[in-house]
């Protein structure tokens, strides 16, 4: 059985990998490869956010009664990350390399910070408080 921190952290790393592959393709001006990798990243990221916002965060809030604490901060950061993803979509569509690389550096830093908060604090707190964590992860793996 896989724990919440283990599974969700692995997903962060998978997203990082797709993200860096897209960025490297833009740096080499290989726009078609960049688009493929970027789209895969965007799909993975969206799925990851949904798993958190629709299932894990409500479970955590229910278990702890903390509805305006860490999960609220994470939701707001998700919203900011989505806005940056939209900007990157536009830069990619316009094939604007400098704009893309400036935005990708920004998104990378933001994601890494966001991931650190989740991996260092929120996921361990979830593991402690969400009783059926391993079953939830098993469902994520099956989907």
């Amino acid at each position: 059985m896989t724990s919440i921190p283990e599974f969700m952290t692995t997903k962060h790393r998978e997203c990082d990998e797709l993200f860096t592959e897209a960025e490297a393709a833009v740096a080499k001006v290989d726009w078609s490869l960049a688009l493929t990798k970027w789209q895969s990243f965007a799909v993975e990221l969206s799925k990851h956010f949904s798993q958190e916002e629709d299932i894990l965060f409500p479970k955590f809030e229910q278990a702890t009664g903390m509805t305006s604490g860490p999960t609220q901060v994470m939701r707001m950061e998700h919203q900011q990350i989505r806005a940056l993803v939209q900007d990157l979509d536009n830069a990619l569509a316009a094939q604007n390399k400098d704009e893309y690389l400036g935005l990708s550096e920004t998104l990378m830093v933001m994601m890494q910070q966001h991931n650190m908060k989740e991996e260092m604090m929120l996921y361990p707190m979830m593991e402690k408080n969400v009783a059926d964590g391993e079953q939830i992860i098993a469902q994520f793996q099956a989907s």
């Binding site: 707001m76 900011q80 806005a83 704009e99 400036g102 550096e105 920004t106 830093v109 933001m110 910070q113």
Partner: peptide, 24 residues
């Protein structure tokens, strides 16, 4: 610089578009 400005936009999401990216 980016992190501090981004934190200020957490509750004021629309202001986020005013933050320049890292290379700027």
């Amino acid at each position: 610089s980016y992190t501090h400005l981004q934190q200020k936009c957490l509750v004021n999401f629309s202001a986020m578009q005013t933050i320049p990216h890292m290379h700027k």
